[in-house]
Design a binder for these strands. Structure first.
Length: 616
RNA sequence: GGGGAGUUAGUUCAGCUGGUUAGAACGCCGCCCUGUCACGGCGGAGGUCAGGGGUUCAAGUCCCCUACUCCUCGCCA
């Protein structure tokens, strides 16, 4: 008499659980058909659940009725089976013509199999649009349309499971350290500056809009003013900016804020958290404290504020050399660039990594793709001649000598140059450095633990000059605390003011950032003044925060870690999309649901909204 | 907003200098098979070459436009 699965017969083991020690047990497994190998009489099925694979065998001698129905089984059908665990043992192989071991070392459960005498087919499946297999690579477009199937793939599933584990580790660590998990609104008031906001029209307040929080920044500061002292939250943030492989319009932060702390106190807490995460997820001990790198040094050597320190290829600044030699240098293009306030930087590719002419040309195409006019190059020959160096054809010997001295280039080395507008030179050189490192395989593989190069980038400028508006703008936000010794420059020389802002960087990814906040109204006033923000404007934009700071705000600071990027790095994923269950495409669409979608006229009327988009 | 790559069978791709009936592998369907494990053997079905326009005696192939996907610069305090 057949048992009723689920209601009467409960699952006893997962598909990843059975071992040699379970031989002889009667078990019940539930799962999906991963694979079917039908030998006519014997039928092997790999049954899959989130925990693993178990081979189940249908043998007409042991369960005639089950075997009969097993012939129909196809990929992704959902089954419940009852049977007995047995050793795979030694079997006569027809292929080999002799008795061999039938165990499968590739499977955790490979020592055993389950002989089935009863089966219920919970559900059949249509042939899936792509195989749920590690061996077959379906395109992302198709995988996104059927994300629920894509999420069945063990690799992706394991990444999502790791994320769940990360959440648990974060919560337990933060709570242990006296942090309160507090919630903040997603729908808030639009505040200017920073990322573009998603807007939500208010039906009850015609013509008014909420802004989806780009981060809980302001609210978490208010928690400090309120006296909660230590706050954290694993929270969604929303930014309506263009996507990249490490950027999604909605993403998750581990948001942290603490009262009565210095920058060092924040670092210690975050280093401890990262240590726990790496230990818990990868069983790797991360050494602390992390290295600290001055912002300006980072820009000079690596061209950005999130350097990958797993390899060298440091940049060398040549601007001063060119300035010193003036028009006598013999390379008018470079001299001109410097005269127009540009900079000159170089990078040496050591002789042990020879690049062909074609490869170097490809590098030029690469930099041109970023807006560079070209790639200056000079190959130093055995005899010290400069070859493949049209730019330096008429360069004076002093210049060549100075460049060799500054770069330390030796015979056989290739020197690459960029010159021109500072921001472009930095962008191009920073990307070129990473591009070449990948090409030359200077970056250690993830396997065998990988190399985890954590660092804090510290002491950046509080302001940066915005050439478009011809004004100083906040480099981070207007509530970052300047170094005490820099306060004197707030009015006279804003560019000189460094601040307590910090980014935590791992292998070229900014995984988090934050600052110690300004809590003194008088200094705050000076910062607003430097930014050209008047009292009225400040009140209008940040009134509630300024008010709050007046009623006894404690010194405080914090940081936010990018949960998605952490997950991406911890799982060796190539993209954020591989650690987010339901990600969006580069145009911000969801290929499964079709979001964003149309709404009808009535909905828009209710919201007092009219679209100006032209119908297609 | 700019630059680049791509779109051919269910899937991943090949398709040369424009020229017969658009191919392969996997998957799918059928038959056979008692030790497979990405089983194997034999047979079969399956195509709006993204969409539109153009050049040509002739277009998957050349040109233009559009859509979508990806990478990237700008943007992301």
């Amino acid at each position: 008499m057949a048992t009723q699965f689920i209601t009467e017969t409960k699952r006893t083991h997962s598909c990843g659980a059975l071992r040699g020690s379970d031989i002889g047990k009667e078990v019940v497994l539930f799962g999906w058909v991963q694979n079917r190998r039908d030998h006519g009489t014997l039928i092997f099925i790999d049954l899959r659940d989130r925990d693993g694979l178990t081979q189940i065998v249908f043998d007409p001698d042991l369960g005639k009725e089950a075997h009969e129905r097993a012939q129909k089984l196809r990929s992704e059908w959902v089954l419940g089976i009852r049977g007995k665990v047995r050793a795979r043992g030694q079997q006569m192989s027809k292929k080999e013509g002799k008795v061999i071991s039938a165990t499968n070392d590739k499977l955790a459960t490979g020592e055993v199999e389950v002989e089935v005498y009863e089966m219920e087919i919970f559900n059949e499946s249509e042939t899936p649009p792509f195989e749920i297999s590690e061996h077959v690579k379906a395109g992302e477009e198709l995988r996104f349309q059927h994300r629920y199937l894509d999420l069945r793939r063990p690799q992706l599933q394991q990444s999502i499971i790791k994320r769940s584990k990360m959440n648990a580790i974060v919560r337990s660590y933060m709570v242990e350290n006296g942090f309160l998990e507090l919630e903040t609104p997603f729908m808030g008031k639009y505040t200017p500056g920073g990322a573009r906001n998603f807007l939500v029209p208010s039906r009850l307040n015609p013509g008014k809009f909420y802004a989806l929080a780009e981060s809980p920044q302001l609210y978490k500061q208010l928690f400090m003013v309120a006296g909660f002292e230590r706050y954290f939250q694993i929270v969604k943030c929303f930014r309506d900016e263009d996507l990249r492989l490490d950027r999604q319009p909605e993403f998750t932060q581990i948001d942290v804020e603490m009262s009565f702390v210095t920058q060092d106190d924040v670092f210690t807490i975050i280093e401890g958290l990262i240590k726990k995460l790496w230990k818990g997820v990868l069983d790797i001990d991360v050494p602390t404290p992390f290295r600290r790198l001055d912002f300006y040094e980072s820009m000079a050597k690596y061209g950005n504020d999130k350097p990958d320190l797993r390899f060298g290829l440091e940049h060398v600044e040549l601007t001063e050399v060119i300035k010193r030699l003036g028009p006598d240098a013999g390379v008018p293009m470079i001299t001109e660039a410097v005269e127009q306030k540009g900079i000159v930087k170089a990078m040496v590719i050591p002789a042990q990594y020879p690049l062909s002419r074609k490869e170097t040309d490809d590098l030029e195409v690469f930099v041109q793709g970023m807006g560079s006019k070209g790639l200056g190059r000079a190959k130093i020959s055995e005899t010290g001649e400069w070859t493949q160096a049209p730019l330096f054809k008429n360069a004076k010997p002093e210049l060549r000598a100075e460049i060799l001295k500054a770069t330390g280039a030796k015979s056989g080395d290739l020197i690459l140059f960029q010159f021109g507008k500072e921001s472009l030179v930095h962008t191009v050189m920073a990307n070129l450095r990473v591009h070449i490192a990948k090409k030359l395989k200077l970056i250690p593989e993830f396997g065998s633990g990988g190399v985890w190069n954590f660092l804090w980038v510290v002491d950046p400028p509080l302001f940066e000059f915005d050439e478009e508006t011809n004004q100083w703008a906040a480099a981070h936000h207007a509530f970052t605390r300047p170094h005490d010794e820099c306060v004197q420059y707030l009015e006279t020389d804003p560019g000189k003011v460094k601040c307590y802002r910090y980014d935590v960087v791992l292998n070229g990814f900014e995984i988090g950032g934050g600052s110690i906040r300004l809590h003194k109204p008088d200094v705050q006033a000076k910062v607003f003044k430097a930014l050209g923000i008047g009292d009225v404007e400040a009140r209008e934009k940040f009134g509630f925060l300024l008010d709050a700071l007046k009623f006894g705000a404690p010194p405080h600071g914090g940081l936010a870690l990018g949960m998605d990027r952490l997950a991406m790095l911890l799982t060796n994923a190539e993209s954020l999309r591989d650690v987010i269950p339901f990600p969006k495409t580069q145009k911000g669409t969801d290929l499964m649901t079709g979001a964003p979608g149309d709404v009808d006229e009535k909905q828009l009327r209710d919201l007092y909204v009219k679209t100006t988009a032209q119908p297609k």
